[in-house]
């Protein structure tokens, strides 16, 4: 793939609407995690408006759960922000992978569409782009679906929290894992990408075992990226 061949990705209301509906099934499961967060936040003693504000503006589940661990009448500011950044640093990498397409957009659209960047809509949109669907509909429309269900789920957890039965019994805790795995395997498979997965996976495992918490995604992704930097694709 040569960069100069690429046109700017399309971003129309119709494409966003399509992205919204494509991500909605996964978003419904995200709502279950939102509910778990809402319940946990109530139990941690946060007032309702703060819980909703956090889900609406931070919109990053793992980081929000981690914040609850530190929440109290006094909160350590720097550890809170460092943890938030460490957990969300994977978004830096996800954003970077979209750059070859995003660079064709005017900066306003480019950065506005990243505001709802999240794991599921990023993964689906990257697959679209790599398979020639040059749109950002899944990122933007799907991101809105995820944001809306995350917020609704949070509210539901605050209100009906104790009524939620065990989501594990229904297999709901595996939804994101299965989704991410299907996105890995839906991508283009060459011996080069497979080697990058293996190297990235082993590095992530080593970091998960022996390096500080939350470093595994950065370590694994950078190790996999190095494979791509050293083993170049054949010139087209």
């Amino acid at each position: 793939m040569v960069m100069s061949d690429r046109a700017a990705p399309e971003l129309s209301l119709a494409l966003c609407r399509q992205g919204f509906w494509r991500l909605l099934p996964i978003s419904l499961f995200v709502a279950v995690f939102g509910a778990a967060f809402g319940l946990a936040a109530v139990q941690a003693g946060l007032p309702g408006h703060e819980i909703l504000l956090m889900s609406a503006t931070v919109f990053a589940g793992t980081a929000q759960f981690a914040a609850l661990e530190m929440w109290g009448t006094e909160v350590p500011v720097l550890p809170l922000l460092a943890t938030t950044f460490a957990i969300n640093a994977r978004m830096l990498l996800m954003g970077a992978t979209l750059y070859p397409w995003m660079s064709r957009l005017p900066p306003g659209q480019r950065y506005a569409s990243l505001v709802v960047l999240s794991d599921a809509n990023w993964a689906m949109n990257l697959n679209d782009l790599q398979s020639g669907r040059n749109t950002l509909g899944a990122l933007v429309g799907g991101g809105f679906a995820l944001w809306l269900t995350w917020l609704t789920g949070t509210l539901a957890g605050m209100v009906f929290g104790s009524a939620i039965s065990d989501p594990r019994a229904l297999g709901v805790d595996m939804v994101m894992g299965c989704f991410m795995l299907s996105m890995v395997l839906a991508g283009r498979r060459t011996s080069r990408t497979v080697l990058a997965w293996v190297v990235g996976g082993l590095a992530a495992y080593a970091a998960y075992r022996w390096l500080p918490e939350n470093s595994h995604v950065l370590v694994g992704a950078l190790a996999g990226g190095l494979v791509g930097a050293l083993w170049l694709e054949d010139k087209p």
């Binding site: 993964a123 996105m183 890995v184 080069r192 992530a204 996999g224």
Partner: peptide, 9 residues
Amino acid sequence: AMAGSVLVA
């Protein structure tokens, strides 16, 4: 190459 590795990680 990093794109797939992020997911794997």
